[in-house]
Amino acid sequence: MKKSCCLILAGVLALAGCKSKEDAKVLNLFAWSEYIPQTVLDGFTAETGIKVNYETFSSGEEMLAKLLAGGVGYDIIQPPDYIAEVLIKEGELLPLDTAKLSGLDNILPEFRGMPHDPQDAYTVPYMTGSVGIVVNTERVTTPVKGFKDLFKPEHSGRIVVVDDGRELVVAALYTLGLGINDITPENIAAARPLLASWFPMIKLFDSDSPKTALLNGDVDLGYVWGGEAAILWDEDKKFQYILPEEGAHIFVDVVAIPAKAPHPDAAHAFISYLLRPEVSKLISDEFPYTNPNGAARKLLTEDQLANPGSYPKTELALDTFRHIGESGALIDELVTDLKNTSGQ
């Protein structure tokens, strides 16, 4: 009882940004909602005695806003790659102390030295995933291989896409054969007519749970997160997932320690814990994204590895998103404008 009082007190002190000796047994985790299984957090606390304060966000931008606003001293954050890139550039992350980490070798070579952190000095990949096309093969019998097949007049009103301007613009840039990280006024202007022809065919935009409309039968095709497609495939094999032939990218969600983290030791211990194959497997069991942990993949079932949503087969060289800074406003304006005109 006394101990738990101490912990609560310590948590309050940590949240208030104060430093004291008592709070070494606390970890302030700031991560995506629906991304870290409770069993993993409980296991970490049981083993180390470190209490985890788990706060969630639902978009990388929201995380960035709260991190930069200061206040709460987060120990572990979980940014997507392109946000980690700018955080590194701005000196907002603590360089990892590899002497305090174990299990880094478990990360597959293709997920090391990625463009957002070429030296792997600040971040460790947590989960990765792709964005691709899912098709209800019971309702759609013609083959769908890419964006050109997805956005065909006969599919009008039967499509769900993620409500994410950048993903939609990138789909258009791939189709046009342009670089996905070159968000220039010229490229945006080139993407506009193509997107303008696509938008009226889209039945709904949903980033949070695009699988719902597919499961409900309200739509038959989608441009969705791989993890969502993996859950659909688990539900019913009629939902097939492919990476568009025009091009595809992966996103990498990493774990990192903010420069002002009050408990860097606990943060390192947590990262090592996540890197353990048996722990990483628990994450894959609950959230079927692409696991970058090679040792953990060996523990997965054949069915898990055969899931195209989690492990799509492709010949494509997959890109990653880079920080685009203020040109994001161009995307936002284009998408708002197109939604506005196609919704008349």
């Binding site: 978009s59 931008e61 929201e62 960035l64 806003a65 409500d163 994410d164 301007g165 889209i202 039945k203 709904l204 935009f205 949903d206 994001g328 406003a329 936002d332 708002t336 939604k339 506005n340 196609s342 919704g343």
Partner: peptide, 25 residues
């Protein structure tokens, strides 16, 4: 408008919310 309208037709509330979250403007 997001949930029942499928986020297809933006309202001014959606635009403002977007600026504070997604667009960070």
């Amino acid at each position: 408008t997001d949930l029942m309208g499928g986020a297809r037709v933006p309202m001014i509330g959606n635009v403002i919310q977007n600026q504070f979250f997604k667009a960070r403007n």
